[in-house]
Design a protein around this nucleic acid. Structure first.
Lengths: 352, 352
DNA sequence: TTGTAAGCGTTATCAG
DNA sequence: CTGATAACGCTTACAA
């Protein structure tokens, strides 16, 4: 059989004919509005399978106003959090037979345009990662009445839509506990941007945890700075360069036994420096990054890092969207510590 | 006026009523099937604007089989090329009022599933970046008859669909010309994976260009290896560590005046090493990366890098999709050299 | 529980 | 060139 013309997709009518029922029954069986699993249901499903039938999304949407489409608006496809979120959301939606409508807006203005365009076509819900870590454009307030909107991250200063915040400070506690459990007594922290509120808050949390776990640090060890490889390298050189030749035990007050970094880039720079000084990771120094970038997997040793809770963000976003609730809800999710080789094993006990 | 209920979107009927014409005329005017710009056309457009009318995508698709949707299937959202492509495609489609349907498949199998699912809903065209740098699953051959498919990158060994290949070797020529123009006489190359065919081809092209521009290199300078920061650091240490204290002129045969890297990560590691040895970039050594990652913008100095021709890939893909051609076409596009500070200015002329 | 039929908003056909 | 109308494939109210 060499059919020269491509077969047109089967419609509900074809399925109904093959199963010897009406199209209404087919619709009900396949959409689950009829739970009995009798002969009719089986016949319908068999016919649908044989014809490789898929419901026509356009027709379904047109009739029922249920679009089975979730919108995602992100500031940039190369933004790490956005890409991770996208990578998590797409398979989840696909698994439930829903579609993803993507919008990219580098500025609040562009995002507003994209959101209007997406919403005009009907969406069951909208997830937005605001540009510039700000908030959703106020012009979109009225949209909230039509479709559920979830804002992920951003300023979250005033809110009407659903809000999901990523808790960095909780992750700091997890990180420090992990290090303490491994027997680490002294830690240095290469923090992020000096002027951001989040960085300052994290910096304070670091010191809180140092006290909580009875650890040691020095003010000269900890500093704000850029999120670059070079910065990590230079800081680690300063931290470990002088003491690298000293014996490797009993030094908890001379140099840190662990280094916590505000970003994987910084951590990788630091690892490079530490290694070049002849020190071993994790035996001499443990290193923790942030962001769980792909690079964290290709370092030697692989880098322990903090991962944005994208799985839970997606789960909770969809739960909120499907909940039908109208009241604003705020959810705070902690980053997840992904433990790899750069913090593996117990520390040498250096108390003489 | 505090209207408590959200206004439902305007339909073509509302526009027709306001413009005092039939819905058929509205449809024709707005879809450009009627080119006259008379009073009727103006009235229709004014009415549409006033009611903030958008064509209902579902209804339009259902009736006309033109979906105004382009599918994009990528191996991963965090994959650099995929993200860059996505970032280029989305705004382009949006500008033409088209939608993007995204599918992520880490394996050829997953990609096939996603493509089937997307195609079942109707697509005007499909762009695929194959997983694992292989080819499109053969099971999709018959799809080619229904919708135009463009494969970007991958093996491209046998093809039926449209093919767009990224030409690395042409970029090597551009890179070497850029360095030669700046007065560089000796270059080292930190190549990629030893076993890949592409790496080997590039390695050969590097040597061809060395001869073409009458430059100098040494076999010990050039090596295959991982695409990591640490690898770049170590290689640069080897290349420049011994000669770093020597005077900075007249050394074209002792150490390379420029370093070409298979990846931005490698280049950043190398820059870190070069800098730590007291050498200056670009004055003492010029560095070129590959991939044009975001990191290339945050190094000091900023990193010259090769950018996949995502803009042209998108333009050509859409052109092929809209062309209506059925014959397989293969297009080869060169990477673009993005010149930044790591190769800026003229080299010191070191011929005594 | 099942079938019949209306209707979602658009585009295409056809008559005027 | 314009307008009336059918048809796209589906969901759902209503009738059987």
């Amino acid at each position: 059989m060499t059919s020269t013309q491509p077969t047109p997709p089967a419609s509900i009518t074809n399925v109904a004919a093959l199963a010897n029922v009406s199209i209404a029954t087919v619709s009900r069986v396949l959409s689950g509005k009829r739970d009995k699993d009798d002969d009719i249901a089986r016949r319908v499903r068999a016919a649908a399978a044989e014809l490789n039938y898929c419901v026509n999304h356009a027709a379904s949407t047109l009739r029922s106003d249920v679009t089975n489409t979730i919108g995602l608006v992100i500031p940039s496809a190369t933004n790490r959090l956005s890409a991770q979120l996208l990578g998590e959301l797409e398979p989840t939606l696909c698994a439930y037979g829903r579609r993803l409508a993507l919008g990219i807006g580098h500025t609040a203005q562009e995002q507003a345009t994209r959101i209007e365009a997406l919403a005009a076509q009907g969406l069951d819900g909208l997830i937005v990662v605001p540009a510039n870590a700000s908030d959703l454009p106020a012009s979109l307030e009225r949209l909230t009445e039509r479709i559920p909107i979830v804002q992920v991250g951003g300023q979250q200063s005033s809110y009407r839509s659903f809000m999901i915040a990523i808790d960095d400070t909780a992750a700091m506690e997890t990180t420090m506990r992990h290090l303490a459990d491994a027997g680490v007594h002294s830690v240095a922290y290469l923090a992020g941007d000096r002027i951001s509120f989040d960085s300052a808050e994290l910096f304070a949390m670091f010191h809180t945890q140092i006290r909580a776990f009875d650890m040691f640090t020095k003010s000269s060890w900890n500093q704000f700075g850029e999120r670059t490889v070079q910065r990590g390298f230079h800081c680690a050189m300063q931290l470990f360069g002088i003491t690298a030749d000293l014996p490797k035990r009993g030094l908890a007050h001379m140099r840190p036994q662990a280094l916590v970094c505000c970003d994987d880039s910084v951590a990788i720079g630091a690892m490079t420096a530490i290694e070049s000084l002849g020190l071993t990771i994790p035996d001499d120094v443990r290193v923790v990054g942030d962001g769980d970038s792909l690079m964290a997997l290709s370092t030697t040793p692989t880098l322990t890092s903090l991962r944005p809770p994208v799985h839970r963000i997606v789960t909770e976003s969809l739960r909120l969207i499907d909940s039908g609730t109208i009241d604003p809800v705020r959810i705070v999710l902690p980053k997840q510590l992904v433990i790899r080789d750069s913090t593996a094993g117990d520390a040498v006990h250096d108390q003489a």
